[in-house]
Design a protein around this nucleic acid. Structure first.
Lengths: 158, 158
DNA sequence: TATTGTTATACTCTATAACTATA
DNA sequence: TATAGTTATAGAGTATAACAATA
């Protein structure tokens, strides 16, 4: 390793990002084989697992802004993979339901994704994978606490 | 955990991404305190550590496309943090050199970044951090092999 | 002919303000 | 008044084609 890269490469945060970008690039290729992107895949998967969710609930669950979800759902609906249905009890809300084609696509795509996941983790023992996931959960929680603190700071300033 | 989230959350690749996004969101806030973004921070850091690199070399080292680097370097040069210098031996090339202000900014920003890194890893023992980095390196390598295979496939088709 | 920096362009993801229709 | 979905818009990051200057 060159002296130059040492400083950047010494940061675990950068190792995390590089691994994530590399992994997501590969997953994106798997999604593309089914005509999906990461966002459309995750929305279609969630809607298939929990039919009847409102768009706002899907957005909240997947950390997608509501305005951005509109296009994603529109694309999936346009391809006949899911359909919007006005909620009977609250006519402002749109509930989402997978079509048969949507459920089939999720089954096929998820199988490929699981395969890709195995390739990605090749060389890691199950206990090592567990340790990795535990470490990632801790980092995510630590970062979340940072963000809440920053948000509180902003609010208290306002 | 709901049955719905189970499928998505079962994917280590998604845990990896969520942790990375959360961590990078926090780092971005640290960069912003110094008027930097992730890209400008990494370029300025590399140029400070290895003055005299050509733009093409910086782009290669940081996996940034050359056209995209032009704007990044232009921004840093415009703020007086580095300067372009036409290479004496090859007048096509621009070598990059940090200014005094640039070096000072890197020193200050890097200290904050290191602090943020510590907060992020809070709760992990040094051996756990080492295991995490080893796992991330394996994943990055596995993904890289996937990408090379896909590239070879494309080339052989053409 | 190949390479460096550059311009122009486009696509994805993300983020916010403001509108509508309902509640 | 508050919320759900929507529209419009903007910014950041990323990607490719094509050009001028230089090798």
């Amino acid at each position: 390793m060159s002296a130059a890269d040492a400083t950047l490469r010494a940061l675990t945060g950068y190792c995390l990002r590089r691994a994530s970008v590399a992994a997501m690039t590969d997953f994106a290729r798997v999604f593309a084989r089914h005509g999906l992107r990461r966002t459309t895949f995750s929305v279609l998967t969630l809607v298939t697992e929990r039919p009847g969710l409102r768009q706002a609930q899907v957005a909240e669950a997947l950390a997608i802004e509501r305005p951005n979800l509109v296009q994603i759902v529109g694309e999936l609906e346009g391809r006949g993979l899911l359909r919007r249905e006005t909620d009977a009890g609250d006519r402002r809300a749109q509930t989402l339901h997978p079509t048969l084609a949507g459920r089939r696509l999720v089954t096929q795509a998820m199988a490929d994704v699981a395969e890709q996941e195995e390739r990605l983790l090749d060389g890691l023992t199950p206990p090592q994978v567990e340790a990795l996931r535990a470490a990632l959960a801790i980092i995510e929680r630590n970062a979340g606490m940072q963000r809440e603190a920053a948000h509180d700071e902003q609010v208290s300033r306002a």
